[in-house]
Design a protein around this nucleic acid. Structure first.
Lengths: 248, 248
DNA sequence: CGAAGTCTTGAACAGAATCAACTACGGTGG
DNA sequence: CCACCGTAGTTGATTCTGTTCAAGACTTCG
């Protein structure tokens, strides 16, 4: 690896999140000029609105640190959380090709975002077939995940859904090297879990208690520990094929 | 409109489903040579497997006539129907860019499919920016729909879900000119509705009875009639914005 | 006509929601 | 330092929505 350009815009060269960003195919060379696309970063507190459904977006965001979530509200105030965003995730790849999104995004913890010019980034990517191909790949993975979530909500019990969510987060955090042993930071409140899985917070509390008394997981000071990964996996209904997903 | 080329491969030129196919942007000219991509058609009976999850696909399919559905099975046999496919729908746009899919597809009624060579079609499209753009647009619409389904399953009651499904099918069939007055062919069995909405067939029966006795819909001989569109729409929770979707 | 698939209905049950009270915790301010 | 507050989590009692099981009626079709 060549020594990084020490100028400010090229701090991206050392970004540890590279493998999780759309622009890092892993197999393609450092594209010159990428650093100049990054306009800077933005720091927001927990609960801050990152994006509001249907608003015109000039920027493209990437989550550098902290957790966020995508969600929709329906008429009477009920909320559905569509997915959780972890460090390295883009708010949405769709912003590469569209100027507005059909969901809102909120910071779950304090977050720091990398900001790119949406159009400049889109132009940069469109001119590089390897990046376009990667974007297509990531988009079709998003579609597959969306269908998995539908299946989870439609056909799994509360216990299964929660086990599933925990395992998924565990795997994603593991790829990001944010798991120590079997423990990881877990900033979700129970109402987040409820809104993501189509349950109520009270019921989430009871199910988590079951999982704890069955010795599958434990939690303390915003950390979650998995004690019986095998059982949790079995309960979650995640198959072998799903586990072997290598792609970042 | 120029007179259609009478040779066999160019029967596509007169296809009434054009506005619903990926390759019809509406605003782009008749691309020469398109007809040659179509390899022919295939007729299958109801319940036939059109595609099995994860199998390598050499062909790209389009539904010319009849209904089909995308679904996933989970370990213990539970089934989740992900969406219904209507005449003019592609089995999946993803086949343009990938050679396998994460779900299965089954014929719901007798169907007739148009068959294209997957790779030849992909090459054809990749060489035409207008088609690539259209494909991107359709893909992001798929993502938006997937999130809507998640929201529906996670946060809506059985009555709302069923009203929602009926309205969605009504609107899609209307675009295809397959609604006469307020009635349309409705080949779904109650267990299809159940598997699509995360319910049981028995409960679907009860809810439909409610809708019937409330005078919202009626059905006879595989046709469904909407009597109170306003109420049904209200119940479905579909907003004004969603209704004004013009794109085919 | 018979048979298989579909729909309906009832009765009993279960999973999850709702309502409500109580605990624990981490600020914040007096 | 403690009283106070808001947020989060727990627990129990109760209700409700949707499931399960089972039987009977109705269609469709070979």
């Amino acid at each position: 690896m060549p020594p990084a350009n020490p100028s400010a815009p090229d701090m991206c060269a050392q970004c540890p999140l590279k493998p999780f960003l759309f622009y890092a195919g892993g197999d393609h060379e450092e594209s010159p000029g990428f650093g100049t696309l990054r306009q800077g970063s933005r720091v927001l507190g927990a609960k801050a609105a990152i994006y509001q459904e249907n608003e015109i977006a000039l920027d493209y965001f990437t989550l550098r640190e902290g957790w966020a979530f995508r969600y929709k509200l329906i008429a009477d105030g009920r909320r559905q959380i569509l997915s959780f965003l972890l460090p390295g995730d883009s708010i949405s790849f769709q912003l590469m090709r569209a100027d507005r999104l059909h969901f809102s995004v909120q910071a779950l913890t304090d977050v720091s975002l990398c900001v790119f010019g949406r159009k400049a980034l889109a132009r940069y990517v469109a001119a590089r077939p390897a990046l376009v191909a990667r974007l297509d790949l990531l988009t079709s993975r998003e579609l597959a995940w969306a269908d998995d979530r539908t299946t989870c909500l439609g056909r799994r019990s509360a216990h299964e859904r929660i086990a599933n969510l925990i395992i998924q987060l565990y795997l994603r955090l593991q790829q990001r090297r944010r798991v120590e042993g079997r423990s990881f930071a877990f900033p979700l409140r129970q109402h987040h879990i409820a809104d993501a899985l189509g349950l109520t917070a009270v019921h989430v509390s009871r199910v988590l208690k079951d999982l704890r008394t069955d010795g599958l997981v434990s939690s303390a000071s915003a950390k979650l520990t998995i004690h019986d990964e095998r059982m949790l996996q079995k309960l979650s209904g995640i198959g072998y094929a799903d586990l072997s997903e290598e792609l970042c």
